[in-house]
Amino acid sequence: MISFVAFSLRRAWQGFWRNGLMSLAATATVVLMLALLAGLIILLTGLDATLDYVQQEVQVVAYVKDSATAQDISGLEASLQRMPQVTQVNFVSKDQAYRDFLARHPDEADVIESLPTNPLPASLQINLRDPNDYLDVAGYLNGQPAVDRVMNIQQTVDQLVTVIGILRIGGTVILIVVGLIVLFTIVNTIRLAVVARADEIEIMRLVGASDAFIRWPFIFEGAFVGLLGAAITIGLLFLGQGPITSFLSDYFKVLPVEASATVGQNVALIVLGAGAGIGVLGSYLSVRSYLIR
């Protein structure tokens, strides 16, 4: 058993390098596919987290007209508090909004400080018991004279859902097409490996080698291609970790910090599994059609 595994691995390794150029080309297509896969997973994870956040934290934000008086605002606050759908109401004054903005975007301090007046509106931030009540509360606010406009979160949510859906379907279709190309390349690589070993295979049959001894080296060779591709992809992702993380935190501010670590781990595992899987599948198909008789 040990000698069988050792033998198969040794032959797979030899076979990989004997046909080096083709093997490396196949590996490159695997890297392409896995990089696409990883990119898609990372992007979708970010978008999904954003969607979750937005949906969970449904807060109605109503910008208050600058002309509204303190009485208007406290009256509005009180009537909102009485609504059964509302759990909490916070008032963010113009000054508070200004400070919040500076804290969040220190780079843009010059721009905003150079303005003659504070452009940021005061707002009411209303937390809801159930996100589905959003329209009721937003409708009520829209009718209030002190309210300038209600931020339409529903629209954001809908857009996000659409984008995620398109990405998911489009990405899957592209992945399937690329996957088929990769499969085809691996099948061909292993077919060439089988052809290169035709004499050896003939001798193996004559001296009574079992089918396992004849086939498994080729399966392992395909697995090598897939695993090497996965290793390279993971290496590339590791090198690109910095840019990827800052991309994630820039575009998906809501993503918790620790999430990027688990995302990285999951992506690495998926890449490894997908690489090995496609390598083994390709060589298995090749062995089936070119070797078994």
Binding site: F7, E200, A209
Partner: peptide, 8 residues
């Protein structure tokens, strides 16, 4: 080779 490929 004949022995190797038969699992000797």
């Amino acid at each position: 080779f004949a022995l190797e490929v038969t699992g000797a």
